[in-house]
Nucleic acid binder design. Structure first.
Lengths: 276, 276
DNA sequence: CGCGCCATTGATTGCTTTCAACGATTGTGG
DNA sequence: CCACAATCGTTGAAAGCAATCAATGGCGCG
């Protein structure tokens, strides 16, 4: 009654299926096919690499549990995390079309990963158009998230950028049922956040404390709660459009209905006016 | 004899065909199909938009002449150019899979653009696997360029970032035959460069003058020459791998052979040692 | 010729980094 | 169960890179 439709088909399940169902027009049949391709899930220790840069990959990796990231290293050791990877996401989708990855994938926490054979997936994508299109959607989404992060890296202040990340994480985690209300568990270090946002860990720390002392967020241990979604969203300039949640039939997922997620521009401005 | 193989099939041509031939495994037959889909070329005035954010696009746009960009605007007017678009590139490939674009596309110079109907291209991509895969490669490339720019925005200094952009532009222009030796024509303003790199126009100006006075580049009017490729590349930390030039049979294009483009790491380090 | 856009230059401000040290928390082994 | 090490978070002071503000110069174009 409350959106938890754990029918038999949901047993295909896990976050990968949830995400595909909510973001693409894939059917349960195709979902089964995908599931059939995926090999046995593998456990990855925290702080180890799943994929090395300039590998010649033969399989893709679906993240089932834990958080991971794509990152690049400069020669002098500077690191940029180019994407945070959450449960249900494919770590290295672009290597489906390109013969070597120009980034590495690392586990930020302990992870569970399901491998999918690259050439088998390529075959499936061409023989089953619905799967090919679903993968296209996922790739376009990667693109959109990178594009938005570029805008953050280039043109947003540290405070705006940190706020933006928190907003994005909440929505993305909510999509796969890993949020609790307006809060979630943040298992990565401030240094990893810093490498994502192009800042230093020290400054991330100061910015987070600023947000806390302004009453926008609460943080106890690894638990983060966004207490003032409207304000935080406003500071961040967060527009969820780039996550393309609205592309899918809204009936298939009710979480978007939570009023403070899909707030309209006007009601948002009201809330800003109200609070100054 | 010198790489200009203008056979009959090259008449399919133009930079789009050149790019596809060099980056993907597409055949002349499929190239013809693509050409057939594309509508009549359209002229776009400089400084006008081709695509507006949150359109519901029915056609894609192939850039045939001129330079364009994808960009995002923040509410207060700050702009981030997320991709520079050069001749032969598709302006909005991701809208093939997603129903609205989260960015705008603007012409930086006067442009010539060929439209392709979205649903017709979707059909073609599924009915002709080779075309679907070629589009996948192009999308992965967009992804790779965004990823590399994120690393630049987040972790490179202004000087490194400007150098990196110049290196990238030279290689990308060379790919479609729009470079002259180690030089090219830079028709965009310093403010547009700044919006690409997440800097201010003032600072871009100072950095460019620094590179000039250090003898790394020459600039007269709109003409830029990279006089010290090895050094500039070294400063930028530019590794052309992310452009995936090596995925294709090298026999199909000889430009990569130009020794200073595909310089190995070791020879590069030598040149660094030599110059200090 | 004059307007407008773009490039250039200088002085000043400020956000973020860097460096350094200390405190808190977690996990581990005796 | 506690001591200890290691990692992570926190705080302060100083330095630096890039932004901002402001003004001038150059160039193309109507």
């Amino acid at each position: 009654m409350n959106g938890h439709n754990h029918s038999a088909s949901a047993e295909i399940g896990g976050p990968f299926a949830t995400r595909l169902r909510r973001l693409t027009h894939i059917g349960d049949d195709e979902l089964c096919e995908l599931q059939r391709l995926s090999g046995e899930a593998r456990q990855i220790h925290a702080k180890t690499d799943l994929v090395h840069a300039s590998d010649h990959p033969v399989r893709l990796h679906v993240l089932l549990e834990g958080w991971a990231c794509r990152y690049k290293l400069l020669r002098d050791g500077r690191r940029q995390i180019t994407s945070l990877l959450l449960p249900g996401e494919i770590c290295d989708l672009d290597t489906l079309y390109v013969t070597n990855s120009d980034y590495a994938v690392g586990a930020l926490t302990a992870c569970t990963v399901a491998p999918i054979d690259r050439s088998e997936l390529r075959d499936l994508a061409t023989s089953q158009p619905a799967i090919g299109e679903a993968l296209g959607v996922l790739m376009a989404l990667d693109n959109a998230m990178l594009t938005e992060r570029s805008a953050c890296l280039g043109r947003r202040s540290a405070r705006e950028h940190v706020s933006h990340l928190l907003c994005e994480l909440l929505v993305r985690l909510m999509l796969v049922g890993h949020a609790r209300g307006n809060g979630f568990t943040l298992l990565i270090t401030q240094e990893e956040i810093a490498d994502t946002l192009g800042l230093t860990a020290v400054h991330v720390n100061r910015v987070l404390q600023g947000l806390k002392s302004d009453g926008l967020i609460e943080q106890r241990g690894h638990n983060v709660v966004i207490s003032e979604w409207g304000l935080l969203r406003r500071i961040a300039g967060f527009q969820s459009g780039y996550l393309h949640l609205e592309d899918v039939d809204e009936a298939t997922f009710d979480f978007v209905r939570v009023p403070w997620v899909m707030q309209t521009q006007s009601s948002d401005q009201n809330s800003l006016d109200a609070h100054g």
